[in-house]
Design a protein around this nucleic acid. Structure first.
Lengths: 211, 211
DNA sequence: ATCGGTGTTGACCGGTTCGGTTAAAGTCGG
DNA sequence: CCGACTTTAACCGAACCGGTCAACACCGAT
């Protein structure tokens, strides 16, 4: 890729990157035209090809950049320092929310890229994924103390439920159009408070009605 | 559309319909080529156009048929006769599972069609939706007795959570490939048992381990 | 064998879109 | 006015799209 891309003003860079996340997160790799991305970024197709040699290069750059951004924000929010589950979730939520204010479709792009089957990029993505994420193995369920939770709670199910809820929420928001970070923040903190209430043992006993 | 389609063996009809659900549920309307659907159905594009005059006709037929199938199975499983929430959910789960064994991608297609923005079909879908579903208003939350649930449970949040979990689960399964109905049945009944346990007041107190 | 009807297809059409290139236009400091 | 840099319109050949059509395969009746 062309180094001149990096000497663009940060704003313009983000604009192009977001255009990519936007288009690639809504269509498969093959059905995501470069022209559409260029339009979304407000530049000409030629210029896009000036910065990125071809579509694959752009796609893989977006993937790498996504991983970089994610780990950067996660680190900054202490998401890799062990704490109790909900503390971790709260931090991670804060991190991802901050990301989403700048790159609204990064999360969806990453998720979709991970499942992308097109042979032109599949192998590269999978290989890269193994590098980036498996090192920081997210075995969040292991190492949880069952005594912290309501007796009889299946921690594995609890975790999956929370995971799928997040995905389902994001999918539906995305279908409706651009993601509204403020609304997302409210919805997710509601969700998190809700989970605390139903899963944690006795955090919310002496709690009156505070607004 | 050509009436001869209906005199095809049921098997072949379902095969074509499923090919449609498959392709349309993975791409937007505009980016779902008829050729791809024909291939997925194992017939030639010409024959597909022989049965359906054009793409729009096929799309709207799939939508109508989807609504018909859904209400048929839901009625057969007494999903419209009021009962308590989890009984209703169990019935509706059974119904949708039975559907999914025959039309694995109907649910995803319907959800996606509902949000389809292409002007060529948007209005027809929305108009039809108003007809089909708003009549049987799914105000499932209203009319619930809070006393049945763990004290302090926010019923609205509970409902949304279960809804999004379902969507998130289905989205992820779909990304991985064809949906495995058996696994889905197990996962969802696990999920339902889990919800009962955490949301319902005292259904599972005197329960030993019976299999 | 042949005729007609039915189910099915390959080949084709005109238009559009695709990834990617190129030559030239705009822009700006000196 | 120059030269270097940024940006684009116009273009290219190939592929793809929705849709058509003439013909092929099959089959029962003649």
């Amino acid at each position: 890729m062309n180094e001149k891309f990096f000497s663009l003003p940060k704003e313009k860079q983000q604009c192009i990157i977001n255009a990519g996340y936007n288009v690639f997160s809504q269509n498969s790799y093959k059905k995501s035209p470069m022209s559409e991305i260029a339009d979304a970024a407000g530049i000409s197709k030629s210029l896009l090809f000036h910065y990125f040699r071809n579509k694959k290069e752009l796609y893989l750059y977006l993937w790498d950049e996504g991983a970089r951004i994610t780990t950067e924000y996660m680190t900054r929010h202490d998401c890799y320092k062990k704490a109790d589950l909900f503390e971790m979730m709260e931090r991670s939520m804060k991190a991802k929310l901050e990301i989403m204010r700048i790159y609204p479709n990064l999360a969806t792009f990453t998720l979709k890229a991970f499942y992308e089957k097109d042979p032109e990029v599949h192998d590269d993505i999978q290989k890269s994924f193994a590098n980036y994420f498996s090192t920081k193995a997210q075995n969040a369920i292991e190492g949880l103390d069952p005594d912290d939770f309501v007796p009889g709670t299946d921690l594995r199910l609890m975790y999956r439920e929370m995971y799928w809820t997040s995905i389902g929420y994001m999918w539906e928001m995305m279908q409706q159009g651009e993601i509204d970070a403020d609304r997302l923040e409210k919805d997710f903190s509601d969700m998190l408070a809700f989970w605390k209430k139903i899963f944690l043992k006795e955090i919310n006993q002496g709690d009156g009605s505070s607004d």
